[in-house]
């Protein structure tokens, strides 16, 4: 009987610790080109009067999510690796579980995978190499994959294929992004693809398959195209 009471108390304690004082913060990532707020893999989008683009694949990693209050880190997600894929709309929504009443006004995350994780062997979940985001000929994750078609590309069928990654100096492609959230719930983030693609010289850089300087430059441009959906009111 005594043992039973003890076990019951332990369960209550564990239950409280795990479930009681936490709150869920939802995150949504929207992908936009101009006025189009959602991207379909079979639609053609105008970039300007002359040029257009069709995106067949857009997949990338968001990792190391952290919440900050006035530039001070107050919460870090453990095992924080999220593979976003525009062909799977559910991947653009995920939830953070943090202690109740956590105050924050910034979100920090990486676009891509860090070098320690890139050296850690076979991993599971979104990092499973069978997800198609791991280079086979040279170890390391593809941080960001953009594939499609554009009249800008003077290639066979006007196709382009950008696989951006690399974790070794000097071609470490992972980018850190910090956005002001103003404690908005859910946290809504826009990846402005038009802003990013305008900075990619698709006429010259239509195929990137390995770590390189261009891979780093295009990754930086991608990071600059992330913003919060509604700017904070001052």
């Amino acid at each position: 009987m005594k043992h039973g009471i003890f076990l019951f108390l332990c369960c209550v304690l564990i239950f409280n610790t795990i479930f009681a004082q936490s709150s869920i913060v939802k995150i949504q990532i929207k992908h936009a080109i101009g006025d189009s707020k959602t991207i379909c893999t079979d639609s053609i989008y105008r970039l300007n009067q002359h040029d257009s683009i069709k995106i067949t694949t857009l997949r990338y990693y968001i990792s190391g999510i952290e919440l900050l209050l006035n530039n001070q880190s107050i919460w870090i997600e453990t095992n924080s690796f999220h593979l976003i894929d525009i062909s799977d709309s559910s991947s653009s929504f995920f939830a953070l579980k943090l202690p109740q009443n956590t105050q924050y006004n910034q979100i920090k995350f990486n676009l891509g995978i860090d070098s320690i994780t890139s050296n850690a062997g076979a991993l599971g979940g979104d990092l499973d190499p069978s997800k198609g985001m791991y280079w086979s000929w040279q170890s390391g994750y593809i941080n960001l994959k953009l594939e499609g078609k554009s009249n800008l590309c003077k290639t066979n069928n006007q196709l382009f294929q950008l696989h951006l990654g690399g974790y070794l100096y000097p071609y470490s492609a992972m980018q850190q992004i910090v956005l002001n959230t103003c404690d908005q719930m859910p946290i809504c983030i826009v990846f402005d693809l038009e802003k990013w693609i305008q900075k990619i010289p698709l006429d010259l850089q239509h195929h990137i398959m390995s770590p390189s300087n261009n891979s780093v430059l295009i990754s930086k441009a991608a990071a600059q195209a992330f913003r919060i959906c509604t700017p904070c009111e001052k």
């Binding site: 890139s118 062997g121 076979a122 086979s136 000929w137 040279q138 170890s139």
Partner: peptide, 15 residues
């Protein structure tokens, strides 16, 4: 080119 034994097999499989 391969940094860990676990991911070594990916190279010949995919080549």
């Amino acid at each position: 080119a391969i940094n860990h034994l676990d991911v070594q097999a990916l190279a010949p499989i995919n080549h």
